[in-house]
């Protein structure tokens, strides 16, 4: 199922930017931080729009949380991505940006990781898709593109043209309903899902 694409996706990103501008003005004391590995594409889009709308240079970084995750040595090996933080966040407002908020564990790790770059005044979370009722930890987003109610066997796939997708689109993939052109997924144990 397609959650967002085309004009609706553009409209959603515009709205998120307007909400950020309402709270952060000209971004004099605000920095954006995109979450590795997938949130950085969305963060770059938001960053581009905000710079266009405000006419100001806004600092942006990319944060990888692999070394802060709580599932190290508890499952499949973790592969770290690159962290690029060309600024300190001491006394700054930080807007953490990710594409999908699910269990909240990545954001918990990110909050710890951000502490290594100084003590920020405030940290806010902006996500494109919020999978509500799925949280393992008490973490909520401040800015949400779209909230969806999902079950565990479903997954949200975000495809940007920068990653080689034909066009920007966000899909909700159920085990028995693969998106067009993706081939058959593994059959669901429960056909009603």
């Amino acid at each position: 199922m397609r959650l967002l694409d085309g004009p609706l996706l553009e409209l959603t990103m515009d709205r998120l930017c307007q909400q950020l501008i309402e709270n952060h003005g000209l971004f004099a004391e605000t920095v954006l931080v995109g979450m590795q590995p997938r949130g950085r594409f969305f963060a770059a889009r938001i960053h581009q729009r905000l710079e266009h709308l405000t006419g100001r240079r806004i600092p942006i970084g990319q944060l990888d949380t692999t070394f802060y995750r709580d599932d190290f040595r508890r499952g499949a090996p973790l592969k770290a991505s690159q962290t690029v933080m060309p600024f300190l966040i001491e006394k700054k407002n930080v807007v953490l940006i990710d594409d999908v908020l699910y269990t909240g564990r990545t954001i918990r790790a990110a909050l710890t990781a951000l502490g290594e770059y100084g003590r920020p005044t405030k940290i806010e979370l902006l996500v494109l898709i919020d999978r509500i009722y799925s949280r393992d930890q008490p973490i909520q987003a401040d800015y949400v593109g779209r909230s969806v109610n999902t079950i565990q066997s479903q997954r949200v796939e975000v495809a940007w043209t920068e990653q080689g997708a034909p066009h920007d689109a966000i899909w909700l993939i159920s085990p028995s309903y693969p998106p067009p052109g993706q081939g058959a997924a593994t059959p669901s144990p429960n056909p009603s899902i």
Binding site: T66, F67, S81, Q82, T83, V84, G115, E116, Y117
Partner: peptide, 14 residues
């Protein structure tokens, strides 16, 4: 990735 960690103000991961 660890080289980046070593250039942070707090050079430590848990």
């Amino acid at each position: 990735k660890f080289k980046e960690v070593l250039n942070r103000p707090i050079r430590k991961v848990p």
